[in-house]
Structures are given as structure tokens and as C-alpha cells.
């Protein structure tokens, strides 16, 4: 197990450098530069343009900029945003808890509904339940998030139903400190009456909008993994032994079917962060998705680079954790070495 961990960690180093190069090159390949875009129709004289590019350090050759950048990154400095002049790291971590909170709820929502649904569909294979569920899952998987989110808002947030708030993280009139950045926790800490409920109600629609695609993927993956496992020899043996069906499905089959499902859950972290861009824009959710889009369109080089690096880092860590999880769940992987 230890050697496994060390090898996996060693892989992270070249991946990290690969990402820094990609992040660095990607934003510079786009035409236009931050100074021109900030000026807009008003324009900026060539002299002033040159002066500002020097101020930002964008006048040096690209390889030189890259080495300065790497040197800074290794010291934990991701630079300052060209637009707001604030440190990138600080902006990222101010906004990140919001994305994390939403993504966490979305994944919990997807697993809690998707997993049992997939299991039931596999057990009742070929029935109307199975067909309906897979039909719904396919629809959910193909639905554009921005459209789905707006439909949810129009249905549930405006009169006549008005069950949920339209957007934001909490009712605008609650005003308290945010020591953790997680609204559910902060609202409890604040001790304000009704704050937690308000935060929870604000989470419902974004969670559904963001969680629908992972839910569909998880349900479909669970179903096919279960079908495979249910035809294995040991399941037949268990049946022959006369074990009750819930034990066969719930313990023996599900546990082994979980491996591909966990992989899918791990990979959907990337999907969630991509989906967060649209979900956050629509629900006015102050997270990193919206921030990245704004940064790209303004050619805010330091923010885009820093943001990509941090997001890639998070995806890498999640996938590493998933790899480690396999061993815990499945003894066949744990003991193979």
C-alpha cells in the first residue's frame, strides 16, 4: 500500500508541470491581450499600451515569463489579478468554498438517488421501472444545464408556486460574518433565526441543476455494473446457499459493483467543476466557475493560470483519493501486489 501511494504521488510531479505549461500557453494562444480588452472602444495609445504591458511584465519573452511564474508558484505566489489587482490565491479561496459546498451537495444528491435507482433497475431488469428509469437518466444526461436551471426557476421560484428562492446563497437580508465560507456552517454559527433554513432552501435548485448529469451517469453505471456482477459465479453460489436476496444484492453484489461506480464518481468531480460554470452563472452563486469565465474573457493571465492550476490540483487529489479507496472497498485490489 505504501509503495502504491508513493508511486501515485510521484506521478503528480510531471502532471503538475504539464499543467503549468498548458495553463500558461493556453491563455496566451488566444488573440488579444488584457490591456486592449480593458480599453474597449475607447482604445489606448501605442505608447500607453507598451507602458502597461511592461507594468504587468507581459513584455518579456514567453519562456522568461514562464520561468518567473514557476519560481513564484513554487513559493506559493500565484500573482495578482490584472483586473482587480488582488492576489489570485486570495480571490480563489474566497470563492472556492461556495463551489465546494454546491458540488458536495450535488454529488451527495446524485449518489443518494442514483445508486439505489441503478441497483433497483438492475434487479428489476427489463421491467417498466427499468425502462422508465433509463429513459429519464438519458434525458437528464442530455439536458443542457442552463436550460434545465431556468426551467426549475420558472417552475418553482416564481408565482404561483414560489417554493424556492430564485438565486443567491442566502436571503439577502441576513447579514453575518463568514468565518468558514460554507454558508450552511456559517448560518448555524451566526445563531440567526431562520438563517440555516434559508441557506438550505437556496441550495435546493442549484443542487438539482448541477447534480442531474452526475446522477444520470451514476444510475446508468450502477445498473450495468450490477448486471455484470449479478451474473458472477459467487452470486450464483450465494443464491444456491439460500441467502436472502437483500443480502446477496446489498452486500455481495453491490460491494463489487461499486468499483466502477466510484471511478465514475471521482471523474465526475471534473464534470461538476465544469457544470459549476453554468450553474453558478445562472444561480448567481459566488464560486470559482463564474470567476474563471470572467477571467478568460478579460485575458486576465494570472487569474486564469492560477485558477486552472488550482482546479487541476484538486481534480488530481480527488482521483488519487479514489484510487486509494479501491483498496479499501475491494480486497482483491488490496491484496494484489
Amino acid at each position: 500500500m505504501f509503495r502504491f501511494l508513493v508511486t501515485r504521488l510521484a506521478y503528480l510531479i510531471p502532471t503538475f508541470f504539464g499543467i503549468t505549461i498548458l495553463a500558461f500557453a493556453f491563455i496566451r494562444l488566444l488573440p488579444g491581450d488584457p490591456v486592449t480588452l480593458l480599453a474597449g472602444e475607447r482604445g489606448v495609445t501605442p505608447e500607453r499600451h507598451a507602458l502597461l504591458m511592461i507594468q504587468f511584465g507581459f513584455d518579456k519573452p514567453a519562456w522568461q515569463q514562464y520561468f518567473y511564474y514557476i519560481a513564484d508558484v513554487l513559493q506559493g505566489d500565484l500573482g495578482k489579478s490584472v483586473v482587480t489587482k488582488q492576489p489570485v490565491l486570495q480571490e480563489f479561496f474566497t470563492l472556492f468554498p461556495a463551489t465546494l459546498e454546491l458540488s458536495f451537495c450535488a454529488i451527495v444528491f446524485a449518489v443518494v438517488i442514483g445508486l439505489p435507482a441503478g441497483v433497483v433497475a438492475a434487479v428489476k431488469r427489463g421491467t417498466w421501472f427499468d425502462h422508465t428509469l433509463m429513459g429519464v437518466a438519458l434525458t437528464g444526461y442530455s439536458m443542457p444545464i442552463f436550460w434545465w436551471a431556468l426551467i426549475l426557476i420558472i417552475l418553482f421560484s416564481t408565482p404561483p408556486l414560489s417554493w424556492t428562492p430564485v438565486s443567491g446563497r442566502i436571503d439577502i437580508l441576513y447579514y453575518f460574518d463568514h468565518p468558514t465560507g460554507f454558508m450552511l456552517i456559517d448560518s448555524l454559527l451566526s445563531g440567526e433565526k431562520g438563517a440555516f433554513t434559508s441557506a438550505l432552501r437556496h441550495l435546493i435548485l442549484p443542487t438539482i441543476a448541477l447534480g442531474t448529469i452526475p446522477l444520470a451517469i451514476i444510475a446508468r453505471q450502477t445498473r450495468s455494473a450490477m448486471l455484470e456482477v449479478l451474473s458472477e459465479d459467487y452470486v450464483r453460489t450465494a443464491r444456491a446457499k439460500g441467502l436472502p436476496p437483500w443480502r446477496i444484492v446489498g452486500l455481495h453484489a453491490l460491494r463489487n459493483a461499486l468499483i466502477p461506480v466510484i471511478t465514475v464518481i471521482g471523474l465526475s468531480v471534473g464534470v461538476l467543476l465544469a457544470g459549476a460554470i453554468l450553474t453558478e452563472t445562472i444561480f448567481a452563486w459566488p464560486g470559482i466557475g463564474k470567476w474563471m469565465v470572467d477571467s478568460i474573457s478579460r485575458r486576465d493571465y494570472p487569474s486564469v493560470q492560477g485558477g486552472l492550476l488550482l482546479i487541476a490540483g484538486i481534480v488530481m487529489i480527488v482521483n488519487l483519493t479514489v484510487d486509494l479507496f479501491y483498496g479499501l472497498i475491494n480486497p482483491r485490489i488490496r491484496h494484489r501486489r
Partner: peptide, 11 residues
Amino acid sequence: AITPDASVRYQ
């Protein structure tokens, strides 16, 4: 209340 999407602002 910062709300980037125009349709959502209307809602």
C-alpha cells in the same frame, strides 16, 4: 444582489 444572468434577474 449580484446576479449575472439576465433571465434570472427578471425572475
